[in-house]
Design a protein around this nucleic acid. Structure first.
Lengths: 332, 332
DNA sequence: TTGTAGGCGTTATCAA
DNA sequence: TTGATAACGCCTACAA
């Protein structure tokens, strides 16, 4: 390939008949009162003429600042992470920092995806175990979201435990005495915490049974597992899902078994994805403050806060949104 | 903040009692027969002791190679792009190149997101108009996917036009004479092409009407628009959707209007998202070869191909997957 | 108001 | 087998 090498600031300087430093001054916008308007204009014209683009690697080396942070998430396609990303990006924008994303897991369940090694100022991980990220990100400023508070570095959380307790209380309050619990088949602090919270809340309600089931996020898996859970004599009368996608599969499984929601089966999701309002009936689900979490993460990473301190202060609140998918259990 | 500066290869060299170049040789793995095993071991030990991580900006500057490419997509959360990303990442892995992603659009419809300026070897854009990307990515190797073939640079496509024609033929073949068409309210070559293909195919079937409607990807919008489309006397008997998410909203709107799918209304989606198999009935939809497109994009970007040549050869085939959401129209 | 010079951390060439 | 040295392109203190 030809790959003609790109023009450098030196080339621009020669074209404009000035020195390299003048070019740098003008193009960085820091020329006020240091370079004459005429010279500045000449420089700008030459830069444009040559289609000059500064070499970002050189700039990053010199400035010890890349202008980019990485958002590391389990998967791309969960809208929760989409909203998280928005929060991160909007907040980073204020600091004149760009954001790129990288998912760790393959959509089709085929092994972990490779992490990019690249020029960065910092990393925000979400819902990922520190063991995964710690070694690779060594030496970078790092904020973990929705992760174990014991981790080195800053950690910000949502109150997922409280959320799960709300969900359980809602169902028990409706009269349910046998709950199906669809857990994510992935090792992560967030899911362990949810599990512990559910067990803890159930301890307060003697006589309420829990039937657990774990599933990957592969749609086919989910449906199979939920159908197994429901296709028994003493089936649960309510389904507690760690993800709205699980709930979607629950709807399908229920339909296939001739169960109607919420008359025969109540369903509670988690995330409040846009999907939740398109289901029939609309899904009762736990809303997580994704965007706010993202903003907070950026402030912790780029704001005045010291890194290295564990922040296990007040987690962001979560809210149970009650819609049409939950009702008292059928009479028996 | 303290921000103790990270150790450099120079520090490692001093700790190991060797020169910087020896360190570079050893750590880059290119020391076979050039450095003694004892020295190499000493270097490795010092590097580990200091927790040395090479400065990637410096390396990129020196090597004129970043080891990373950017995948630029409209939104993160559409699973189509998740699978595209997998194809890109797996293929890039072969070239020892990392991949980061950046979406251009906000999940909530609030204006475009800022692009990151960062150290890269190249960019792959998908389903994005060249006007958006061209100026910002100036000077980078660039491959466009699912985009207008007239663009400067390499372009690879899927045969979305043929796919839409398949969908129309399927519906017309079932006997439908009035089709509702839910178009994406976004300016992009891919959607214009789909539109043109639908019109073209309809020209071959006189007597078949088309009722168009445009919608953003915001769930609330979609439902509203589809309901408007269906809540009339001479409503279409089939819905042709440019996205499976539109189809989901179609299911909901149909349910709310008391229409049953497919008896009263047939629905055809596009993308074959995992969601398609969880709907009741399962969704007839156009499958797009996302992963394959991603792989092809990487080969065009990093493989032996010359850049700068427009590749408008054979587009990747698309396949209509017929499931339960399409049937003959109701008798009138 | 403009130019000179030095160095950021790395890799590669070449001499020892 | 190893080490000195130069260069990648940029920014900035300081000199002119």
């Amino acid at each position: 390939m030809p790959e003609r090498s790109r023009p450098t600031s030196h080339d621009v300087a020669r074209a404009a008949g000035v020195s390299q430093s003048t070019v740098s001054l003008v193009l960085s916008g820091r020329w006020a009162g240091r370079v004459s308007e005429a010279t500045a204009e000449r420089v700008r014209r030459s830069a444009e003429g040559l289609a000059y683009q500064p070499n970002l690697a050189a700039r990053a080396l010199r400035l010890e600042r890349a202008g980019t942070i990485l958002l590391l998430v389990p998967v791309l396609t969960n809208p929760f992470f989409g909203h998280l990303h928005m929060g991160v990006t909007r907040a980073a924008e204020q600091h004149e920092i760009g954001v790129v994303v990288c998912p760790l897991q393959a959509e089709d369940g085929s092994g972990p995806l490779p992490l990019p090694r690249q020029v960065l100022d910092g990393v925000i991980t979400c819902s990922i175990d520190d063991t995964v990220s710690a070694d690779h990100l060594h030496g970078l400023r790092w904020v973990a979201l929705d992760s174990a508070p014991a981790t080195t570095g800053t950690v910000l959380n949502m109150d997922v435990a409280d959320g799960m307790r709300q969900s359980v209380r809602h169902l028990v309050g409706l009269g349910h005495r046998r709950l199906g619990y669809i857990r994510a088949d992935r090792t992560a602090w967030t899911f362990e915490t949810r599990y512990a919270a559910v067990l803890e809340e159930l301890d307060r309600h003697p006589g309420v049974d829990l039937v657990e089931m774990r599933s990957t996020f592969l749609m086919a898996d989910i449906k199979t597992h939920i159908t197994e859970l429901l296709d028994v004599d003493d089936r649960p009368t309510a389904l507690l899902c760690e993800d709205d996608n699980f709930a979607l599969a629950g709807y399908r499984a229920a339909h296939d078994l001739g169960l109607s929601i919420p008359a025969d089966l109540s369903v509670v999701g988690c995330d409040d994805l846009p999907l939740a309002r398109l289901l029939t009936p609309e899904l009762t689900t736990l809303r997580l403050p994704a965007e706010e979490l993202g903003r907070a993460g950026v402030e912790a990473l780029l704001g005045g806060q010291p890194t290295g301190a564990v922040h296990d202060g007040v987690p962001l609140p979560t809210t149970l949104i009650v819609r049409g998918s939950t009702a008292p259990p059928p009479p028996r």
